[in-house]
């Protein structure tokens, strides 16, 4: 019985470690430090809607693991479907594809240097004080 409990405990622990590793925060350069968005609002923001907050979405490249997790958990679409969506938006003149930065480190730098910029990062990353977490998903 003890062995079983240890195994179950180990599985639960490793599960939560995986979970924590996959947690994503959406971070904004905003004066409103108490701002929180819903998943629906974050999804809309990264699909090209400006929401009325004057936020500008910034993304990571398609092959980036953080982007893959963000697409799966927040956008709810595959990378190829997101690429198709942006092809449709671009060639019908409806919306502009978000600016891309090459890595999480560059994302952090871009967010710090640009007011209104919003990007997603691994929750494990230590954030500077001047950025605000507006959404977290485990």
């Amino acid at each position: 019985m003890k062995i079983l409990l240890i195994i179950v405990g180990f599985i639960s622990l490793s599960g939560s470690i995986c979970f924590a590793n996959n947690a994503i925060t959406v971070v904004a350069n905003t004066q409103d430090r108490g701002m929180l968005l819903s998943r629906h609002e974050v999804r809309n923001l990264f699909m090209g809607t400006r929401l009325g907050y004057n936020f500008i979405a910034i993304t990571l490249p398609p092959e980036n693991q953080t982007r893959v997790i963000f697409n799966t958990k927040v956008i709810g679409l595959t990378e190829s479907r997101i690429q198709s969506y942006w092809a449709q938006m671009r060639f019908t003149g409806r919306k502009k594809i978000p600016r891309e930065v090459a890595s999480e480190q560059l994302m952090l730098e871009y967010l710090q240097n640009n007011k209104g910029a919003v990007g997603y990062l691994p929750a494990s990353l230590t954030l500077p004080d001047d950025l605000t977490v507006i959404y977290t998903i485990l």
């Binding site: 400006r50 092809a87 449709q88 060639f91 019908t92």
Partner: peptide, 29 residues
């Protein structure tokens, strides 16, 4: 404004869901 957009000139007709993007095959499955 962020919510309003006006387009003037020659544009694609948006009859059906994909008719304004019918030439961009990458946009549909």
């Amino acid at each position: 404004t962020n919510a309003l957009k006006l387009k003037l000139g020659r544009q694609r007709t948006p009859f059906l869901n994909y008719s304004d993007v019918i030439d961009v095959g990458y946009a549909y499955p």
